[in-house]
Each structure stands twice: as C-alpha cells, then as structure tokens.
Amino acid sequence: IVKESLLDKEQDLPSMLDYVKLIKRDSNLNTPPVFPIYAAGLVFQWLKKQGGVKQMQQQNEAKTALLYDMLDNSKLFLGTAHAPDRSLTNVPFTTGSKELDEKFITQAEANGLKNIRGHVLVGGMRASMYNAFPIEGVEALVDFMKAFERKERPIYAATLK
C-alpha cells in the first residue's frame, strides 16, 4: 500500500527500497536471502532463551577468563595475544615448540578436543569459543592442558638445558 503521489518523485534509494522500481517489477525486483534470514531468526530466539546479549557477554567472559587464567599461570603454554588485544571468541596459544604443539594437538584430538590446531599462517593452537560453545568444553580443555603440562613440562624443560 503506497500513496501514489509519492511514486512520482525521483528517489535516490537502493533498488530494494525504491517503490517505483518494485511496482514496475511487480514486487519481484530481488529475492531476499530467505535461509539466512530464517537462520538468523533461530539464533535470535536462542539468544533470548539464554538470557539475551548481556547474559551471553557474561558467559563468554567467564569462558575466556578460565582459559586465559590457565595460560597466564602456565609454565608450558603461552597465550600469543597481548592482554589488551585478547579475544572473547578465539584464543591462540603455543608451547613454543612446534613438535610439542603437534603432540598436544594430536593428543587433544584423541581426547575429543576437536579443531584445536591454530591458524595455518600462525601455527600453535587456537580455542574457538563462540556463543553456543558451552563452558564445560572450556573446562575440559583446561583440564587436559593441565594434565598435558604435568606430564610434558619436565621432559620439555630437560631438552632446553
């Protein structure tokens, strides 16, 4: 429903907002991206059920605090992002040894910790903790890192001497 007198005016609008163009094409100027709109709607509903954006922010901060605390206090693992630049979503880290990183990645995979390998250009490891990733997954990673450190650090330290 459009006031026809408005259709006579020249408009500087994107095509999908230009009623004159839409009417000339019988409202078929373009097809909206239906599936992404549907998927976004599902995500928004899920976010509301989780308590909204503020609650998700608190959950994400708790997840990353757990992992960054492990990295900050580790004698084997090192977080590679400077503290002011740290991400709530992706946490890169390394042992400082490509061989030990590879051993960690292999053992993590065998223990159900998937996709821990770091970016192809950077190496090391990377924990991705998107909104839907549960804190239990971070706890499992931290527990595994602590066990790996207890076992491997004495061996690694001896090779540095």
Rank of each mutant, 00 (worst) to 15 (best):
K9Y: 05
P92F: 06
Q50S: 09
E136P: 02
K3L: 10
G96N: 08
L47Q: 09
G123V: 05
G112C: 08
D143I: 02
D101M: 00
S15N: 08
T95P: 00
K54R: 12
G123L: 06
F35G: 01
L141N: 03
I1D: 11
S27E: 13
A65G: 09
K146E: 13
K151C: 00
L71Y: 06
Q57A: 13
L22E: 13
P32A: 04
N30M: 12
Q45G: 02
V91T: 08
V53E: 12
L78Q: 11
V20P: 05
L67H: 00
A108E: 01
L88S: 05
A62M: 13
E99K: 12
E4K: 12
S5F: 10
E102L: 10
P14V: 08
W46D: 10
L121R: 14
E99M: 09
V142S: 00
S74L: 04
I105M: 15
D69Q: 15
A158L: 14
V91F: 02
L78D: 02
T106V: 15
T89K: 09
D101T: 05
M125R: 07
T89H: 14
R25D: 10
G52A: 02
K21R: 06
M56F: 01
K49R: 12
P14K: 06
Y156K: 05
N60F: 04
K21N: 05
E109S: 11
L17F: 12
P134M: 08
L13T: 09
